[in-house]
């Protein structure tokens, strides 16, 4: 007879979305996996130069790993890299977007909650982001699909206020109500209504049906992009109850044309000047 509580060990694929140091040389790794949802585990001695695991268990890497379940932190071993996404590692813009994507995957995942579509989506978007010349649309595709997968698909054909079918025209978007609001039936006292032009609405509808290749082949204007970005983010903030930490850096990198030589002036430490 074996002992009563034999530890469960399994091998899984996973994407590293968070790392932190533990003790002298260990590292705590957070992975998004297809079957086990979020998995947190310890990689022993992973920070030592000779570690067989350290190089594999870095952020934004798709790895295969053996997980030994314990009551607290699981033990990780036998790691190999499936895809290291090098394209996300030598470009600040792609790195910042990859960070946003992984943070969002973590926020939309739960421990022990199998979510194969979310995992598949994460891999698809990371590989696209690595090479695509339209990373903006890859991000919007991901935002839209995550909302759909988690049951918060934006309502884009009927007014969420009046229920009537929307005429092809400029309308508004309410993140609170989760969809478009007819310009005429604008609810009284509602403050958080975002503008949604006819072109933006067309883009939203397109994104809700397109696959990632179609989405990144779509070119859009500045104005539509800005509206799209505000609407999708507002909806995500509403679902998650707060913003994402990685947004600030992504926005900073994006708005530095030609990599300006100043550090952002938007922070609190401008007081000593």
């Amino acid at each position: 007879m074996t002992s009563k509580r034999r530890p469960v060990t399994y091998t899984t694929d996973g994407v590293v979305v968070r790392t932190s140091n533990l003790g002298e040389a260990d590292r705590i790794i957070t992975l998004i996996t297809p079957i086990h949802g979020i998995v947190r585990g310890v990689a022993k001695a992973a920070r030592k130069p000779g570690s067989k695991m350290g190089g594999h268990l870095d952020l934004l890497k798709h790895v295969s790993v053996s997980v030994r379940e314990t009551r607290t932190l699981h033990g990780l071993s036998q790691v190999s890299t499936v895809n290291g996404y090098r394209g996300l590692r030598d470009d600040l813009d792609r790195f910042s977007r990859g960070s946003y994507i992984s943070e969002m995957a973590e926020r939309f995942s739960v421990e022990n909650g199998a979510n194969q579509p979310l995992f598949r989506l994460l891999l698809d978007v990371l590989s696209t982001l690595e090479v695509s010349d339209n990373p903006e649309m890859a991000i919007h595709f991901y935002e839209m699909r995550l909302l759909q997968l988690s049951g918060f698909a934006p309502e884009l054909s009927r007014c969420v206020e009046s229920g009537v079918e929307l005429e092809p025209a400029n309308h508004l978007y309410s993140a609170d109500r989760g969809g478009l609001v007819n310009n005429e039936s604008r609810p009284v006292g509602e403050t958080a209504l975002l503008p949604a032009s006819l072109n933006t609405i067309k883009l939203l509808r397109f994104l809700s049906r397109a696959d990632i290749a179609q989405a990144t082949a779509m070119k859009s204007g500045e104005d539509e992009n800005r509206q799209l970005s505000r609407i999708l983010r507002a909806q995500i903030h509403h679902v998650l109850d707060r913003g994402l930490r990685s947004e600030a850096f992504m926005d900073e990198v994006r708005t530095r044309p030609g990599h300006g030589n100043g550090i952002g002036r938007t922070t609190s430490d401008s007081s000593n000047e």
């Binding site: 979305v17 968070r18 952020l59 910042s96 960070s99 946003y100 992984s102 943070e103 973590e106 930490r245 990685s246 600030a248 850096f249 992504m250 900073e252 550090i263 952002g264 938007t266 922070t267 430490d269």
Partner: peptide, 11 residues
């Protein structure tokens, strides 16, 4: 270090 997922930026 810059760590977007932890909200640590260049500033």
């Amino acid at each position: 270090v810059i760590s977007p997922v932890n909200g640590v930026g260049p500033n």
